[in-house]
Design a protein around this nucleic acid. Structure first.
Lengths: 236, 236
DNA sequence: GGAAATATGTGTTATAAAACATAATCAGCG
DNA sequence: CGCTGATTATGTTTTATAACACATATTTCC
């Protein structure tokens, strides 16, 4: 496997890198935040939180990659979100003030900032811009979730997998070569993200390779022909 | 068809009935809201907004029933939300500050309050509790949306339809008899809410009738055996 | 370094649900 | 009032995809 170049890993992130919160704070609020948060590191496959747990902190992903999934009925999991730095993690449950309804597991080593509930609500109370950022975040994610509900229920396997690859490209982007997806998922994760069995993810990936739309080398996926991939995604 | 008793229709609602906003305002803010909103009435099947439109007001459903749906790929629509009084309508796009990604159509005659964007943002800025209500609303709806993504993709037809009936019961409740669903949908809407073809909605509804779980008289659905319905919903 | 576990790959079969076809019933309306 | 279009209903065929089975890599870790 080649070197996984990820700028966010080159230097250790700090709470100041969480722009959507740090940048809107006053100097006084910044100080409060800096003095009142914890930093935790997670290794690959570690569990960040599990379905049912009640969050008492707001989590921000400083670096690394995280999958958020719900355990399904037929044993198959559904990945409902792939998180990238710098974004909030598990914040839906935090702000709904209820338990997590999904679990979060590390895909690539993570640095996560924990901001205690009391601090978050103090900041929300005095900083109106922070509230607006949270509102916008949730509204956008709800839009995405509804979009996915429709595509995952209505598109055919090829369309679903093509769309997932494009979504991953949107979230994590390409390597420096401009074609290698900057995320390395197992076939099973890819299947769970696309609402299909692992077998069908493998099979469909192979047909995409035969059609010269992508290349696959282990978990390294290169998108050769993004227009065709978009067409496959659109047509179903 | 029997009388559709709906308390919210008995007396004309006012902006004061939108508790999640009115009740958290100061007297001064209340006055501002009362002087700066419009009231519109919609008849059955009227379009409230369509996919692509950019909202310039926050809409609150004072009375009536609304379906929110996305146009799918194979021509089939997916109903992503059934709205009841008193809740916000189309507020996801409003707060994401982008276009609507779904359309809203009247199921039962509606009274809708329009609060202009400037007023909403003025209230958000000075009233922290209002922000929190919006945040909580969006967070809860995102939770529901993700839950539905999993159930609509993984449950079998029977499970999906059973769940939809239970969800409708949660949203609109029963008539006074404690068993008649207080919402009257076409088989097509029921199908579009449950991610299945109209034929299959009709067929499955019939099997539920045969199994004495429900009765059906036109669009009037009575739930006879809610425990069995819940079991069907859970098992797939 | 080798055994065990895990992940990937491929062919075959079974099946849930869509697609199609065709009535029957109901609602609106000139 | 009877025509027209929408809605509801039901049987048959087709198909996409899950389920199963099994082979082969690849990683893990003792």
């Amino acid at each position: 496997m080649p070197q996984r170049t990820d700028k966010s890993l080159n230097s250790e992130p700090t709470i100041k890198d969480i722009k959507q919160i740090y940048d809107v704070l006053t100097d006084e609020e910044k100080l409060k935040l800096e003095n009142n948060h914890k930093v935790k590191h997670f290794k690959k496959n570690e569990v960040i939180y599990e379905e049912g747990e009640v969050p008492d902190s707001l989590l921000c992903l400083g670096s690394g990659k995280v999958k958020v999934y719900k355990v399904g009925f037929g044993g198959r999991d559904q990945i409902v979100r792939m998180a990238n730095p710098t974004s909030f993690i598990g914040y839906r449950a935090f702000f709904a003030e209820g338990p997590h309804v999904a679990s979060a597991v590390v895909i690539e080593p993570c640095t996560i900032f924990y901001i205690p509930k009391t601090i978050v609500f103090e900041l929300l109370e005095c900083n109106h811009q922070f509230s607006l950022n949270i509102i916008r975040s949730l509204a956008q994610e709800l839009g995405f979730s509804r979009y996915r509900t429709v595509t995952l229920t209505q598109k055919h396997i090829r369309g679903r997998l093509a769309e997932s690859l494009l979504v991953l490209k949107e979230i994590y982007g390409f390597e420096d070569d401009g074609m290698t997806l900057n995320v390395y998922l197992s076939r099973e994760d890819l299947a769970n993200f696309s609402n299909m069995t692992t077998s069908n993810a493998i099979r469909t990936l192979s047909t995409f390779v035969n059609e010269k739309v992508i290349t696959v080398d282990g978990r390294i996926i290169k998108i050769l022909d993004i227009e065709t991939l978009e067409r496959i995604s659109k047509l179903g």
